[in-house]
Amino acid sequence: MKNAFQIILLLFVYTYSSNSRAENNLVADLSQDNVKISTDFLGAKILLFGAYDGIKGDDIIVVVSGPKGLVTVQKKEKVLGVWVNTKKINYINAPKYLHIASNKDINEILNYKTRKISEIGLNNLNVRMQPGEKISTKEEEEWRKALTRNMLKSKLWSLDENSVKLNKNALFRTYVALPSNVPTGIFNVKILHYRNNTLISKERSTINVSKSGMSAEIYNIAQNYSTLYGIFAVLLAVLIGWITNIIFRKI
């Protein structure tokens, strides 16, 4: 109900301000822009919604991109009867979280060139092999596919075509799912409004994912006071072991 109310309010604001803002007439909001990873965190589902000035046939694409960094792809081979990781390729600038959503197949919304230039689609990302990796072009494709396949499997990457719901060429809504193994950091949210392969309007937002509460404190202590943390972990175990022995001795 609260979300529905927000959409109506947005629409209201948008209708009265659209005349003065002809350039970028797309507004969007998130049900949650600050995700806290606390002891009971099981992942999050965020509603992304807003209004756009569209006509019939317009499309919306949403790209949520987490912090970027180094991702290693490993390949196993059979050595003396055992499957062993023998080769690895490092990829730089790989998003550790990526969610792409649209109201229909992206291939129908954008042509090949636009997809490449705008870096939209799992194969059009600006992910590069670390300089110095020696590999043939054919193999390169296999490794790059393996990266996508494994990131999709871990749910850290997702492609959800047909998941953006459009209403009366004016409203859109979609859900952004953050899995429980989501990395922390600032996530960039891009909402793109296309008409005939041309960008009409766009909007940006961010989601801040951070650790909080007891889980954040334990993590920080383990990182910053690691030896003390280890000693404490041992003492806690000693104490619990000793107490149980006293309890069971009396039974």
Binding site: A222, S226, G230, I231, I240
Partner: peptide, 24 residues
């Protein structure tokens, strides 16, 4: 105990929540 303290200080891999649940 020695392994725990060394793993904690060198690798930060001791999960005290997991360990406590297991040991209880």
């Amino acid at each position: 105990a020695n392994t725990t303290i060394l793993q904690a200080s060198q690798n930060q891999t001791v999960d005290i929540v997991l360990a406590t649940l297991l040991l209880l």
